[in-house]
Design a protein around this nucleic acid. Structure first.
Lengths: 337, 337
DNA sequence: TAAATATGTGCAAACGATTGTATTTTGGCA
DNA sequence: TGCCAAAATACAATCGTTTGCACATATTTA
């Protein structure tokens, strides 16, 4: 069906090697032959066979993605799809294809990674993971196979990664609230097993201490999860304590829009609306909430874009950048006043 | 770095062809040699090179996805990510890789399709599209390149496709509302350029006529778009008409959760809560709405799964099924009573 | 005018598998 | 012992490129 390099060679009256050199615009071929060959390419509608090319080059020009469906937020959070588009953009710009596989466990993640590297079907791998002590990371490191990670890994030495500055993100949110006059601020955190959570917690604490705002122990939920249930639960505790005579916060900083929804739900049930709430991740869920949620946009598309960039640039030995910090931005809406 | 088939052959004291035959479990090789070869494979930790294999087989064992970011619902609707997981599952089960590319226009879609087929880097393509008169479809048809479509194409002859039964979906919704006693039902549709919209409209109409429920012209918004704005607009018209003395519907059938949100918003603004509303697509946005949205789940993961199945089965000449209809299911929540 | 240097192309060996065909080995039987 | 068929394995071509090196021709220099 498709024409091969030999067909082109024959038609142009040259050898296959010459055709190959014309295609890579090798200066050793005369302009005249180049014209002739290009005409033949045109006429035969010739496209190089990617597979044969890969075999000869020992490069597949494709990168593999390892995604995990364990993450419950997969559906709710547009993070993944945005990151995928970002990856796709940089990859396409540089002539790379992108492969993916969704896995259900760390075991499967590892299997796919092993298959990718041992069958040499990709030139590099992007890991969507924030597991501490990730098996894929150690495997790929040992194999010295090019890879990049979305989310800062435990041990950053010799690994390519991109991440938000999660510290700065909550710092900014907290600073914002303080600048609005809030002085009793609650914080609802995520699982401390993840670096994200630790950083966000620290950002909050730092902003508070810098501004000399006192940290109330009962307002602080350091170790939790990203669910609406957890947000609801925390807020209920706060409200109960208040009803029992304790202080009431005037603002709540959360680490996920879901948590914020939980907080809002608790407030609604108790008929409260005088507490400012901020979310995280800027999901549609927050956008269409009432009040519309002030939230932190993590720019997932940029995360994907730069994850692809560090990886591909590394593969092509273009640049020595090992990581990118993608800034977050605070999206001001109605819930934080 | 990795061992090749020749290394294995040498170590097992046989030829490369024998190793190849052992790997494909060819009965012409004696059990004894098989043992020996397998031991060598084990010891050298040998994995076949996927590229070389592809070149020899004229099969890449990968399928390409053509996705479009034009669709604004990309972020809001978990449709895509769910469909991707479904595709990934069937592909992995059958030893296929999946490649994707996000494009910004039909032109780009076509470019990618052309690149995929002419560089022979995939064995088949899955199209995420519902454009009428899609250029990719006609291109792939002309090239006789294997592909499947998510969403029923205009001309189904000789094309593999999967879709929901959109007719049946709105029929069921309407039937459900009628069974609850509703007799004044409004319908808010999507763009009639898409088959989905036509089918949903027909399903509604049929259910109404079968049950002998009169169709009120002013309740019918046949040609619209899937936005919340459109839903809001329609509902406002209805309410204004009612305020001007016309009838008021007791229920509204929409074609998208976003439309339903718009409807709900209009109702809230007007202090109305006695009208039942149904959504479509069962997005998180609807789930966390108040009232929780009764909606239609399209089982996007299954759509993806079967799109991969028809395609891969066709490529491997396993089965002659040309399409699947994936049933939708009505998710009953609070908004339709 | 011969030698030295550019300049442009072709040859052939990779890349790492698969597979049709040829060849060797084995075993049975006369 | 010799012959033949069957069983097991090896050989070599092939898939479609790329690329180092050799070779031929054109151009300059002594």
């Amino acid at each position: 069906m498709g024409a091969t390099i030999n067909d082109v060679a024959k038609r142009a009256g040259v050898s296959a090697s010459t055709v190959s050199r014309v295609l890579s615009d090798n200066p050793r071929i005369s302009e005249e032959t180049k014209q002739r060959v290009r005409k033949a390419v045109e006429e035969l509608n010739y496209y190089p066979n990617a597979i044969a090319r890969s075999l000869a080059n020992c490069a597949t020009k494709t990168i593999g993605l390892i995604l995990n469906t364990e993450a419950e937020s997969l559906k709710r959070n547009p993070f993944f799809i945005e990151a995928l588009t970002g990856i796709s953009i940089y990859a396409q710009e540089n002539g790379y294809n992108v492969m993916f596989a969704f896995n259900k466990s760390e075991e499967e993640d590892l299997n796919i990674a092993m298959r990718y590297v041992s069958s040499r079907s990709v030139d590099g791998i992007i890991l969507f993971t924030s597991r501490t002590n990730d098996k894929c990371i150690s495997f790929l490191k040992k194999k010295k196979f090019p890879f990049s990670v979305i989310g800062r890994p435990d041990e950053i030495k010799g690994v390519l990664w991109v991440d938000n500055d999660n510290f700065q993100a909550t710092y900014q949110v907290t600073d914002y609230l303080i600048s609005k006059g809030h002085t009793a601020i609650s914080f609802i955190g995520g699982p401390l097993g993840h670096n994200v959570s630790k950083d966000r917690l620290e950002g909050f604490k730092r902003a508070m201490s810098i501004h000399g705002v006192p940290l109330e122990k009962t307002f602080l939920f350091e170790n939790g999860d990203f669910s609406d249930d957890f947000g609801y639960e925390c807020m209920m505790k706060i409200i109960s304590a208040w009803e029992a005579g304790q202080n009431k916060p005037t603002a709540v900083v959360t680490c996920d829009d879901m948590q914020a929804l939980g907080v809002l739900k608790a407030m609604q049930e108790k008929g409260l609306s005088d507490i400012a709430v901020t979310g995280f991740n800027n999901t549609p869920l927050g956008m269409y909430q009432s009040p519309k949620l002030t939230s932190v946009d993590v720019n997932a598309d940029k995360l994907g874009f730069y994850a692809a960039k560090v990886l591909i640039d590394f593969i092509e030995r273009k640049e020595a950048t090992t990581h990118y910090i993608v800034p977050t931005n605070l999206v001001e809406r109605e819930s934080a006043f």
